[in-house]
């Protein structure tokens, strides 16, 4: 086993042990982080590796939640999660077919449109989604046994996070994974190298969608309700923020970013309670969130992963690590019109 794989497995085991030690609330937070991390890894694959910005991540999570809910309620047991993944893949294909013909900015705006249309459909398609009431979901069952405790969900989520991490780690080393990077760097070059750009982007979107669907399924099972308002635009923004804050293109970064963005509101909440400013907490939370995004982007484009590796490295400043999942340099992708140099 290579070092990053070993590290990921060890950390997961630690996280599972930690979950068993923490109370129910702690387990809930842990599993929220793990789910967010799966979603962030999924988005990182599309945005960080392949360079396509997706504002419909929340919509894909929603599709996963509804699909898992329907399958779970019908007694499909563990199969509910792959079903959720496949449903999201199907959605990704539907979005991708028209949108992936567009490039850069226009792709982003097309996914924005997809996000709003999906949100609308969740509310509209009452026979399937139960509309604004939301779809009530029975507890998840594993080989026929329902999971009731939050600790149980946390362990499932951590296990799946590890699996996601390993799959993506492997994927990056395949030809397909490398072709994602080339497409991100320069579509013309990719074409020149004989890469089918449209197909590559579609595959990235589909794989990304699959993991988003699984994360969504987990959200549905733990909330026990798939609700249209839970999968709004602001959640998509949260996910973009996770991979930005974590460090675009870095897998440990995506996990760190997910943890950071998920735990930040709670941390501010607790701080606020200590200082008795609970009335302004919400504003404070949003302010910190906005400020952090801005500051990270201005001062540390490579995000937490860069800060992390700087801290880890005994040699102090080290902008590039050799070999392993190194944080990728932010690329200069200039929009085609009116940009300045």
């Amino acid at each position: 086993m290579s070092r990053p794989v070993l590290a990921a497995v060890l950390l997961s085991v630690l996280a599972v042990i930690g979950t068993l030690l923490l109370g129910r609330f702690g387990a809930y937070m842990m599993h929220a982080v793990a789910i967010a991390a799966i979603g962030a890894l999924s988005l990182n694959l599309l945005t960080g590796f392949c360079g396509q910005i997706n504002f419909a991540q929340a919509g894909l999570l929603g599709v996963g939640a509804y699909a898992a809910g329907l399958a779970g309620n019908a007694g499909w047991d563990l199969l509910a999660l792959p079903v959720a993944g496949l449903a999201a893949v199907a959605t990704a294909v539907l979005i991708g077919l028209p949108a992936l013909r567009l490039r850069g900015l226009y792709f982003a705006i097309a996914t924005l449109a997809a996000q709003f249309i999906l949100e609308y459909l969740f509310k509209f398609a009452e026979p399937i989604t139960h509309g604004v009431s939301g779809l009530l979901i029975k507890p998840m069952t594993v080989f026929g046994r329902p999971i009731q405790a939050d600790q149980g969900y946390a362990i499932v989520a951590i296990t799946l996070l590890l699996a996601t991490f390993l799959v993506m780690h492997w994927l990056r080393r395949t030809d397909l994974g490398r072709s994602f990077l080339v497409v991100r760097e320069n579509e013309v070059v990719a074409k020149g190298m004989g890469i089918n750009v449209a197909r590559t982007k579609m595959l990235a979107f589909m794989i990304s969608g699959f993991f988003a669907g699984i994360a969504g399924g987990l959200i549905g099972f733990t909330a026990r309700l798939a609700h249209p308002e839970s999968f709004g635009m602001s959640l998509s923004v949260d996910y973009v923020a996770m991979i930005i804050v974590g460090g675009l293109g870095s897998m440990p970064g995506a996990v760190l970013g997910a943890g950071f963005i998920t735990l930040l509101p709670e941390a501010i909440q607790r701080l606020g309670e200590i200082f008795h400013i609970s009335d302004q907490l919400s504003a404070l939370r949003e302010m910190t969130f906005g400020l952090l995004i801005i500051l990270f982007l201005i001062f540390e484009g490579r995000g937490l992963s860069a800060i992390g590796s700087r801290l880890v490295s005994a040699r102090g400043w080290r902008t590039r690590q050799g070999g392993r999942a190194e944080p990728l340099e932010l690329q200069k992708i200039k929009s085609s019109q009116g940009g300045l140099e």
Binding site: T47, G51, I53, G104, L105, A108, V237, V240, A241, I244, L248, E286, M287, F289, G290, L291, L292, I293, I294, L297, I298, G301, L330, Q331, K332, I333, K334, S335
Partner: peptide, 17 residues
Amino acid sequence: KAPLVAVMTVTLGMLIL
């Protein structure tokens, strides 16, 4: 000189702020 996604996101950050 940042990539498109970063610039889009920073304006989202401004919106939130």
